[in-house]
Amino acid sequence: MRRRHLTTALLVLAVVALFAVPLLLDGGSSEYAGTDSRATEVVQESAPDYEPWFESVFSPGSTEIESGLFALQAALGGVALGYVLGRLRGRRTAEQTTGRTTGQPEPDRA
C-alpha cells in the first residue's frame, strides 16, 4: 500500500515538473501565447487577403472574463469527476465494511 502511495506521489510530481521546469528554465523570456492563436497568425501571414467570414456568436468582454469562463469549465469538469470518483470509492469502502460484518465466505467452513 505504501509503495502504491509513493508511485502516486511520483506521478503527480512528474506532471508538475513537466510544466514547471520549462517555465523555470525559460526565465520569463517567452510570452507563452496559445498555439491556437499562433496558428491564426500564421494563417494571416501566409494568406493576408483571407477575411474571416463569420464572427463568434458571443465573445467574452475581456481576457479576465474569458479566463473566468475557462476556470468555470475546468471547475464543472472537476466537480463532476470528483463526484464520480468519490462515489466509486465510497461504494468500495461500503462493500468492504459490509463484507467484514456479514462475514465473506469463510475459508475454514470449506
Binding site: 520549462p22 525559460d26 496559445g34 498555439t35
Partner: peptide, 9 residues
C-alpha cells in the same frame, strides 16, 4: 499549459 517551445497549449 506552458510548454518547452515558449508557447502554451
Amino acid at each position: 499549459l506552458p510548454s518547452v517551445t515558449g508557447s502554451s497549449s
